[in-house]
């Protein structure tokens, strides 16, 4: 019944190749977070602007990003846009899909964080002669980023794991893509995916640890 023979040696030989893939994974995740954070700040600004069109646009983005499968978002970026003659490479489509997803979740995190900061903080800044922009920039924003820091870290971990969906749009240079190709050639599914899983786990843990150290340095209050 259980007659499978493990071939770890064969799988471990591919480790350097997989680690190269892990670097691509980390790169896509980091880029998607940088883009996602910038977009999330813009979405937050849209929602705060009081402008109906901007606010509606931002809300629609957040709703779609958070309530549809990430797989579909990446699929749409690659095949969906392809239907309209916009051809994104698997790498770009994966990056765009995850950045879209990140932006939605992060914008919602920012909204929650903003709610936690009392209006009296802005009022105090304004009463000292600050403009609304100054009060936001120097008083509200730093507090918001602190409150949102842990959720942002979670999203980073989630972004790393989401990159594995790139396989479905033909991404073959990241950890999941390389693992999938190795698997297709050898059918050593368990071994390759177990090793890849360990690498994902270690990356995720390393990111969480780095974030914790960074937080301890940045937030001393």
């Amino acid at each position: 019944m259980f007659s499978y023979t493990f071939h770890w040696n064969q799988a471990l030989k591919a480790l350097p190749q997989m680690l190269d893939g892990a670097l691509v994974t980390l790169q896509v995740a980091l880029l998607s977070m940088v883009i996602g954070l910038a977009l999330a700040l813009a979405l937050t600004a849209c929602r705060l602007s009081g402008n109906r069109i901007l606010g509606g646009f931002a809300t629609a983005w957040v709703e779609i990003a958070r309530n549809t499968p990430a797989l579909f978002q990446i699929y749409m970026a690659h095949f969906g846009l392809g239907n309209f003659g916009i051809h994104l490479s698997p790498y770009t489509a994966l990056l765009a899909g995850i950045a879209f997803n990140n932006a939605g979740y992060l914008a919602e995190n920012f909204r929650g964080a903003l709610k936690a900061i009392p209006d009296t903080q802005t009022r105090a800044g304004r009463s000292l002669g600050m403009t609304p922009v100054q009060a936001f920039r120097y008083i509200v924003l730093p507090q918001m980023l602190r409150i949102a820091f842990l959720p942002v870290t979670n999203q980073m971990v989630w972004a790393i794991l989401m990159t594995s969906l790139g396989v479905t749009v033909g991404m073959n240079t990241d950890l999941a893509g390389i693992t999938q190709e190795l698997n297709a050639r050898s059918f050593r599914t368990f071994e390759f995916f177990a090793i890849a899983a360990v690498i994902y786990y270690l990356i995720a843990k390393a990111v969480t640890l780095a974030a914790r150290l960074l937080a301890a340095r940045m937030f001393r209050y």
Partner: peptide
């Protein structure tokens, strides 16, 4: 200058 009932200290500074 105005000072309020709530102290409104900026906690991150």
């Amino acid at each position: 200058g105005i000072v309020f009932q709530q102290f409104n200290a900026f906690p991150h500074l």
